[in-house]
Simulated scan of single mutants.
Amino acid sequence: MSTPGFEYTLTRTLDAPVDKVWAAWTVADNYGTWASAEEVVMDARPGGTWSSVMVIPGGARIPLSGGYTEVVKNKRLVMGMNVPGRDEPVLMTIDLAADGERTQIVLSQTCDTAEERDQAEQGSNFLLDGLTAYLATA
């Protein structure tokens, strides 16, 4: 069953084993390094919460928070992000598939409007670019 909305899906093959990719998304110090985030707190388990302060180009700081609805180690991470003025968190799904020493990542999200989708997709591409660069040096 799909919810009405505007969806996007990004797929990339990362040059790192799946356990390294998983740790990049679920270990606070790792995530902060590649996602331009500070004060990162992560409790990556169903019902657990996360928070961070995103530092965007130009120096603006944006506090973010949310929770985890589904956590399957090295396979699937469903994270919700709290959005001001919205009752339900915005969910982002990350699916990982091991391919030897490489990992396929599929990141998907459904938004309420085309504009939100376009902004979220741009932000997710920025995140995946940071992740790719981080994994190349990690």
Rank of each mutant, 00 (worst) to 15 (best):
E39M: 08
D43Q: 13
T49D: 13
A24R: 05
G58C: 09
I62P: 01
G58N: 12
P63N: 12
D29H: 05
G58M: 08
R45S: 11
A35F: 14
A60P: 07
V40D: 02
I94Q: 02
D43W: 08
W22I: 00
D29P: 01
M54L: 13
Y31M: 13
A23V: 01
S52I: 01
A28D: 06
V72G: 04
M42Y: 01
E88A: 15
R45F: 04
V78N: 07
I56L: 15
N74A: 10
N74Y: 09
G80D: 06
K20D: 11
G32T: 04
L64V: 01
D43G: 11
G58R: 11
M79V: 14
K73V: 14
A60V: 12
V55C: 15
I56R: 15
R76C: 09
P46I: 14
V71E: 03
D87G: 07
K75I: 04
A24K: 07
W25D: 01
G66N: 03
M42S: 02
G80W: 02
G32I: 03
T49R: 13
D95K: 02
V78G: 05
P63V: 13
W25G: 01
A35D: 10
E88N: 15
S36R: 11
S52Q: 09
A24G: 08
S51N: 11
A23G: 03
L77N: 02
A37T: 09
G66S: 02
S65M: 03
M92W: 12
I62Y: 04
S65K: 03
M81L: 09
S65C: 08
G58L: 10
N82W: 00
G67T: 10
E39L: 08
G80Q: 06
A60G: 11
M81I: 12
I56A: 14
G67D: 10
R45N: 09
A60H: 12
S51I: 05
T26N: 06
A37V: 05
W25H: 09
W25Q: 00
G80C: 04
V78T: 09
I56E: 15
D29S: 13
L77G: 02
W22M: 03
V41T: 12
D95W: 00
G32V: 06
N30F: 00
A37D: 07
A60R: 14
P46C: 15
I94G: 02
Y31G: 02
A28I: 04
P89V: 11
Y68L: 09
W25M: 01
S51Q: 14
S52T: 08
N30P: 00
R76N: 09
W50E: 02
R76M: 14
E88V: 15
I94S: 01
N74D: 15
A44M: 14
A24D: 06
T69L: 03
M42C: 05
G85P: 09
S51H: 09
G59Q: 13
N82T: 07
E88Y: 14
M81Q: 10
K73G: 11
D95S: 08
W22P: 00
P57M: 05
S36P: 00
V78C: 03
T33S: 12
P57R: 10
S65I: 01
N74L: 09
A23S: 11
K75V: 06
I56H: 10
M42A: 03
